[in-house]
Amino acid sequence: MGWLVTIHVLSAVLGIGPTYFGHVLLRKKQSREQLLESLKLFGLLNYFPKIGGSLAVVSGILLVLLSDWKFSELWIVGSLILYVLIQVVAVAMMGPVLKRLVQALGEDEDRERDPAAGSSSLLAQANRLYNTASIMGTILILLMIVKPI
C-alpha cells in the first residue's frame, strides 16, 4: 500500500504543482510576442496536470478500494467533485478562451495595432478562470492533507 501512496502523492505534486506557474505566464502587461510565448509555455505545462492528475485520480481510487476508506466519506466525495469542477473550468471553459486569445493576438498582428486593445478582456477572463481553478486545486490539496470527516 505504501508504494501506491507514494505514486499518488508524487503524481499529485508533479501533476498539480507546475500548473501554478500559469499565473506568471498569464500576467498582464506583456508584449504581444511575450504573451504568445507564454501561451506556448502554458500549453506545454498543461501536460503535467493531464498526465499527473489522471494518475493521481486512478491511484486515489485504488487507494480507496484497497483501504478502509469509503467513497461516501465527505473528503473523498468533495475531492472527486473538485477534481471534476477543475477539469470543467480548465478544459471546457478556459481552453476556448485561450484559443480566442491566440486568435485575437494573430488578428492584432495583421492590423498592426496595440494588441492590448483586442486581447486584454480575453486575458482577464482567462486569468479569472485560472484563479478559480487554482483556488479549487488548493482546496483539493488541503482535503488530501486534512481528510475531514
Rank of each mutant, 00 (worst) to 15 (best):
M1N: 04
M1T: 09
G2V: 11
L4D: 02
H8C: 06
S11L: 08
S11M: 00
A12V: 05
V13N: 09
L14I: 12
G15V: 00
G15W: 00
I16A: 04
P18H: 02
P18N: 11
Y20D: 03
F21C: 13
H23Q: 09
H23A: 09
H23R: 11
V24K: 13
L25S: 02
L26V: 03
L26E: 03
K28Y: 07
K29L: 13
K29Y: 14
Q30M: 15
E33I: 11
Q34Y: 08
L35N: 08
E37M: 15
L41D: 11
G43R: 03
L45N: 04
F48N: 03
P49M: 02
K50L: 14
K50S: 09
K50D: 02
L55N: 02
G60S: 04
I61A: 09
I61G: 00
L62W: 02
L62C: 03
V64M: 00
L65T: 10
K70A: 13
S72V: 01
S72D: 12
E73Q: 15
L74M: 11
W75T: 09
W75R: 12
G78M: 13
S79M: 15
L82F: 04
Y83L: 10
Y83G: 14
V84A: 14
Q87N: 15
V88I: 07
V88Y: 10
V89I: 15
A90Q: 10
M93E: 10
M94W: 04
G95V: 01
P96F: 07
V97H: 10
V97I: 14
R100S: 12
L101C: 07
Q103P: 00
A104Y: 08
L105T: 01
E107F: 07
E109N: 02
E109K: 13
D110V: 11
D114V: 04
A117P: 02
A117W: 12
G118K: 07
S120Y: 06
L123G: 07
A126M: 07
L129W: 05
Y130P: 05
Y130G: 09
N131T: 10
A133F: 03
T138F: 15
T138Q: 10
I141H: 02
L143R: 03
I145R: 00
I145T: 00
P148T: 00
P148I: 05
